[in-house]
């Protein structure tokens, strides 16, 4: 139950795009067609599913105040949390690289579909944002953190596929010239955000 709640909350209520604007850059840049949007969205889910739990372990066993207690009593009072930004981003950058290599080696078909998007992801703020929120939310175990990563990724996937579908249709609409493209995409996202506000307070 707890897991379903975390999933729903991270995917719909605290949606990365609509409430926190995370990953907007690639969200706007890669949402011109549904096909590419699906590819990037899937890549984001994939990377979040791996990086959030890894960063959770890092946070719990290395960075948090007292986290080094397993090394012995001398280390029990160490607090390395000031290093969290740099460690998280390093983990993300290297995992993205690793995933790219693994996918290329073992599944060329998947690489063909996701490959070009993977490098983009290291600088997608949704990825770092999810890790930072994970740190703030203080999940009780790694399972919750994983579900949180999955939910956040799914929320992002949903957002980018939806906007891409709308943008494909809206090409044929009559929009004032200066508003075409990015301007309209912003306003559309705003409207979708309003719709997602309807999920507020939803709990199982």
């Amino acid at each position: 139950m707890e897991y379903i709640n975390i999933f729903i909350k991270s995917a719909f209520i605290d949606n990365m795009v609509f409430t926190f604007f995370f990953g907007m850059c690639s969200y706007l840049a890669v949402s011109k067609t549904v096909k590419t949007a699906t590819g990037l969205g899937a890549a984001v889910i994939f990377v979040l599913l791996i990086t959030v739990p890894v960063n959770y372990l890092l946070e719990t066993y290395v960075l948090k105040e007292g986290a080094l207690a397993w090394l012995g009593d001398d280390y029990a009072s160490m607090d390395l949390s000031f290093l969290s930004f740099i460690m998280f981003i390093a983990v993300i950058a290297s995992i993205v690289q690793l995933v790219e290599m693994l996918v290329e080696k073992f599944s060329p078909a998947l690489y063909g579909a996701l490959g070009i998007f993977l490098p983009l992801i290291a600088v997608n703020c949704a990825i770092l944002g999810a890790s930072l929120f994970m740190q703030q939310k203080q999940f009780a175990n790694i399972g919750q953190a994983t579900v949180y990563g999955l939910g956040s990724g799914f929320g992002w996937f949903l957002a980018i596929v939806l906007i891409a579908a709308i943008r494909e249709k809206i090409k044929y609409s009559h929009i004032p010239g200066p508003l075409k493209g990015v301007g309209m995409a912003f306003i559309l996202t705003g409207l979708m955000g309003l719709a997602f506000l309807g999920f507020l307070g939803f709990e199982l």
Partner: peptide
């Protein structure tokens, strides 16, 4: 609420 920022930026780009 969050969506209003998007509207404002959209209109900013328009102008």
């Amino acid at each position: 609420l969050p969506p209003s920022s998007l509207f404002i930026v959209g209109i900013y780009i328009w102008v």
